[in-house]
Design a protein around this nucleic acid. Structure first.
Length: 491
RNA sequence: GCGGCCGUAGUCUAGUCUGGUAGGACGCCAGCCUGCCACGCUGGUGGUCCCGGGUUCAAAUCCCGGCGGCCGCACCA
């Protein structure tokens, strides 16, 4: 229908803009064997990502006094024994011997025989059930073979011996395994937030939709370690208790606006601590330019939750492709520190006041690439048939363009002088080609919020105009004040 | 992985059925013009026709295989 066609073209329009103007592109694209699900950021995309992460640092890490670390991407097998990923981050599969179709064995058994196969069931057990009940290929009736677990982690061989290790499927495991030392050395008290930005890797069966589902992707994760007996004793949460969350608890069709305090009192959110971090993450996306009505915090049901989660909220943003999950807000309970304590033998218990406690964990696991897609798609607008990227100024890859009104002396020399004055402190671009209107349009397309224009009056009195992208209005300022004015306008 | 549709300059596309010199528009570059919002002028740059193999005197076109994209099934940040 019309709605769908419009939705597709919006995605297409953004992908085209991204390819043409250097936001992102398929990795290995010049080779025919380029695997799907890997993307390279171009100069503008890399800058946008950098600014997005900087906003995240400002609004979450620094605001809440968190620690930020940077862990290895390759982690030992034991890490994933303890985390449960080796066993639980898998799908049991089998292949039809005749037509090669691949099936989720547990789902196929349940569908054909009604037998619910427990997640822990071994492959041998599943194969036995398949033989006993003569479960066959749905398509051609062939016999099922090649029973195996498909683990979504990328397995590596380390060194000449090929020691077993894995690329991390989420960044947070290094936070958990580093926790004991961090806690001893960094002199903090519970609750303590530890953050990390970095790559994670998942061997998706079928990556698609550009940045939305990739095999190698960026996460910005925050793990808050807290005393489960003191989840409603968080002074820094108090100022936000009157803030309204756009909450969609389990079983509801539509999100509702409700204050943190009321959500806690009505039992929709389990604690002050959880409500507080839901509020922070919602505020963060508002500051990144997503309108509140396109944001929701949706509670996940039992069957939707990750294997480690005891309470789970997804921050989702509405796009032309539907609601996209950007942040998994999971109460992981004692799953992680408990698991690592058991497997490693390393004590994870800490003192909180005079109480000995194994901290629980609440996480804000944010998908960066997805977020950037949503921000870009949301910012994409049109004026006179040409794209305008209405990015928040603090996220714009190019912060200002310096343009002589005419490509003629002495305007060009003066404009280059001003460009030189700004280039070390700002991401600025100089452009004198074509007409001034054409250059404005070119900057609008990549979301440059301000264009500084040098005209004849500049030569007379040293003033320039600053043209604002969204309103196209201009103000005239002294050129020597530009650094200070830009700095103010860009925060 | 399966099914449907698709793959031609940076982008959009004509040509594919019916095999015979790959064409246009936009963009980009250079110059001209230009006192403020693309769509004035001139010239220029542009293509492994997704990749590999086959049929043929000759393949963008026909056949086979692969890769990738979009939409569905399943999973997720």
């Amino acid at each position: 229908m019309g709605r769908l066609a419009k939705a597709e073209s919006r995605y297409d329009a953004l992908m085209r803009l991204a390819l043409e103007r250097g936001f992102f592109q398929p990795s290995s694209e010049i080779y025919g064997d380029a695997p799907a699900g890997f993307w390279d950021y171009g100069p503008l995309g890399a800058a946008l990502k950098r600014r997005f992460i900087e906003l995240w640092r400002r609004e979450l890490v620094r605001r809440d006094g968190m620690l930020e670390i940077d862990g290895a991407q390759v982690l030992s097998r034991s890490v994933f024994v303890a985390s449960g990923h080796l066993e639980s981050f898998v799908d049991p599969i089998a292949r039809c011997g005749r037509c090669k179709a691949i099936y989720r064995v547990d789902k196929l058994i349940e569908e054909k025989t009604g037998i619910h196969v427990p997640e822990r069931a071994s492959l041998e057990e599943m194969e036995r059930i398949v033989r006993e009940h003569d479960v066959r290929c749905q398509r051609c009736g062939g016999e099922l073979t090649e029973f195996s677990h498909f683990n979504m982690m990328f397995r590596l061989g380390i060194g000449v011996g090929g020691g077993e290790a894995y690329l991390r499927p989420e960044t947070c495991q290094s936070i958990f395994i580093d926790f004991p030392r961090l806690y001893r050395t960094m002199r903090r008290k519970l609750p303590i937030g530890i953050a990390q930005v970095g790559k994670s890797f998942r061997n998706e069966i079928s990556p698609r939709q550009g940045l939305l589902r990739m095999r190698e992707f960026y996460q910005a994760e925050i793990e808050v370690f807290f005393n489960p007996n003191r989840v409603n004793d968080l002074p820094r949460a108090r100022p936000l208790m009157g803030y309204k969350l756009r909450l969609q608890p389990e079983g509801r069709e539509e999100p509702m606006m409700i204050t943190c305090r009321e959500a806690i009192d009505r039992g929709l959110v389990s604690s002050e601590l959880v409500a507080y971090y839901l509020a922070l993450i919602q505020q963060f996306y508002e500051k990144a330019g997503i309108p509140l009505e396109r944001i929701r915090l949706r509670q996940l049901g039992e069957d939707e939750k990750a294997f480690y989660a005891v309470e789970a909220w997804d921050l989702e943003v509405e796009t032309s492709l539907g609601w996209v999950e950007l942040v998994a807000c999971n109460n992981r309970g004692a799953h992680d520190l408990g698991g690592h304590q058991r497997v490693s033998g390393q004590e994870m218990v800490v003192m909180d006041g005079d109480e000995k406690v194994l901290p629980h964990v609440f996480e804000l696991s944010l998908g960066i690439d997805r977020s950037l897609y949503c921000i870009l798609e949301n910012a994409l607008d049109e004026r006179g048939g040409k794209p305008v990227l209405r990015l928040r100024p603090q996220l714009a890859p190019i912060q200002a363009a310096v343009l002589p009104l005419l490509s003629r002396e002495p305007l060009t020399t003066k404009a280059k002088e001003i460009y030189e004055m700004l280039r070390m402190d700002f991401d600025v671009e100089y452009d004198e080609s074509g007409s001034i209107g054409r250059r404005y349009v070119r900057q609008d397309e990549v979301g440059t919020p301000y264009c500084i224009t040098i005209d004849h009056q500049t030569i007379e009195d040293g003033t320039v105009t600053i043209r604002e992208r969204d309103t196209m209005t201009q103000i005239r300022v002294k050129s020597e004040q530009l650094p200070q004015i830009l700095r103010e306008m860009l925060t």
